[in-house]
Amino acid sequence: MKSQMFAIIKKDLQGITTNKRMFSTLLAVPLVLSVFIPTVFILVLHFAPDESVNLQKLLEMLPINELEEDLSLSIIGLVLNYILPIFFLIIPIMAATVMSATSFVGEKEKQTLETLLYSPLSLKEIFRSKVLASFLLSMFVSAISFVAMLLVVEAETKLTTGGFILPDMKWALILILVSPAISLIAITLIVRGSAKAQSVEDAQQRAVFLLLPVLLLLVSQFTGVLFVNVWILLALGIVCALLALWLLRKSMDDFQYEVLLK
């Protein structure tokens, strides 16, 4: 990778982080997802009368080996390890969408794209810089959300049950492999869409149409995958990562300046 690409990455990231209003919205939604929702859940669990839900039965139906002594703790463990990971597939993609959708078409609208194209970087290198900038942002937001979620969930668990529950192995796999790979696929496709779009709105609509089915699929299918086993998750992660790299290599093969500037 050329050092000049870092200049573009840095400029793009600065562009988004110095826009305070945009950046706070960007952080707000993930934080709500990763902090607020688990909090509500834990509080409801804590204040709801035990008899109202037959938790024991529910838990027995699920393929979980060791049940904690405290029922609430088991339920929290279930949420932490089987429900919350899904958020971490959605959060990075959401966080990067705005930035990646505007990546090319935003420069086109501000008439800075042509200037960028006069640089000694090839179209592919510019494309990769754009993808990487969005990707770094998404991973940053994702990491912040994870830390915030973990702190909140642990603190609340301690307060409500007096116990303590750890995220399991799958989390590491998701945070390090699956989530980055899926985000990279989404971002590459969105940035590519941005290069073809005629306006920022156009690019954002494309992004939403692209993402909605993907997100629905993730949400509906992923819990199942989590229940199956770690190896399947690993395999899925590797497949996604390879797909992401392939897309990153192949995208823009068919692009020329003329198409981009039109």
Binding site: T18, T112, L116, S119, P120, L121
Partner: peptide, 21 residues
């Protein structure tokens, strides 16, 4: 071929300088 509105004159030049290595 315009430059970035949200950057200052010198910031713009430094950016394009670094794009040229």
């Amino acid at each position: 071929a315009q430059m970035y509105q949200n950057l200052t004159g010198i910031q713009n030049l430094v950016f394009y300088g670094s794009v040229f290595g």
